[in-house]
């Protein structure tokens, strides 16, 4: 029963989710091993964002099971705070706290949630901002930063909680084209350091480059999946082929 690192870090099994009458997820299953980088792609409205929002219990599911390091997410007695300490999330709209500086955004949760002392939390926050190449922007407010810079602060903020898994929900979709590259580079660095990442993305070139495994979703089911080279060169399902022909 107890989870070991040899088991999947995140194990999604036959998950069903609907918003009222609208069925969004129709039996999705996938496993993510420690250190894996997986990309979920698919047309808008296919349920990919909903799927990763279920992993940290921002959305609940009606049926099925999601295990994060062996902890069942679909459980009324779930300790959401414990789950969310293990799972970091970065959003399309960055969602930085606008009344706090970049540094405060990054160090606030470690101090308040993990009860770290202020000095060491600040030192770690500075190191993280340096890591995402934002040295010198510590005291800037989110409104003074470009979209790409804000998104990198958001990544640093999430990393400050020392999560075991990172979820990225279309994190470059709201960015100006010239700042997409810097954010993707940051994620790539993370992936190379062995961080377990689940990405929802429309950046096919990037998915191909960093992912260990690609999942294609449509209408709430996984239509096809495989390692990037096989997936992009040799898609079997007509829906996948059609989607790829529109995108590439």
């Amino acid at each position: 029963m107890s989870w070991t690192p040899a088991d999947p870090m995140v194990s999604i099994n036959n998950v069903h989710k609907s918003f009222g009458e609208l069925k969004v997820l129709n039996g999705v299953s996938l496993d993510v091993m420690k250190g894996d980088v997986i990309c979920i792609i698919g047309p808008s409205g296919s349920g990919k964002s909903t799927l990763i929002r279920c992993v940290n219990a921002l959305n609940d599911i009606q049926q099925g099971s999601i295990l994060v390091e062996g902890q069942e997410v679909n459980d009324a007695k779930l300790d959401k705070l414990e789950l969310r300490k293990k799972v970091g999330m970065v959003f399309q709209q960055y969602n930085l706290f606008p009344h706090k500086t970049a540094l405060q955004n990054v160090m606030m949760a470690p101090i308040r949630v993990l009860k770290q002392d202020k000095a060491s939390a600040e030192a770690k926050a500075r190191a993280l901002l340096k890591k995402v190449r934002l040295e010198g922007k510590e005291d800037a407010y989110p409104g003074e930063l470009s979209g790409g810079q804000q998104q990198r602060v958001a990544i640093a903020r999430s990393l400050a909680m020392q999560p075991d898994v990172m979820l990225f929900d279309e994190v470059t979709a709201a960015l100006d084209p010239e700042t997409v590259g810097e954010v993707l580079q940051t994620i790539k660095d993370l992936a190379e350091e062995g961080m377990t990442c689940i990405l929802v993305t429309h950046e096919m070139g990037f998915a191909r480059e960093v992912a260990d495994h690609i999942y294609f979703t449509d209408r709430g089911v996984i239509v096809e999946h495989g390692p990037p080279d096989t997936f992009f060169q040799n898609a079997q399902d007509p829906r996948t082929q059609e989607f790829l022909s529109q995108i590439l």
Binding site: N56, L58, E82, R84, F91, N95, A109, R112, M161
Partner: peptide, 13 residues
């Protein structure tokens, strides 16, 4: 914006 709630929740506040 609801994103403020979601960001805080995902940081385990």
């Amino acid at each position: 914006p609801s994103g403020q709630w979601e960001a805080a929740e995902s940081l385990a506040y």
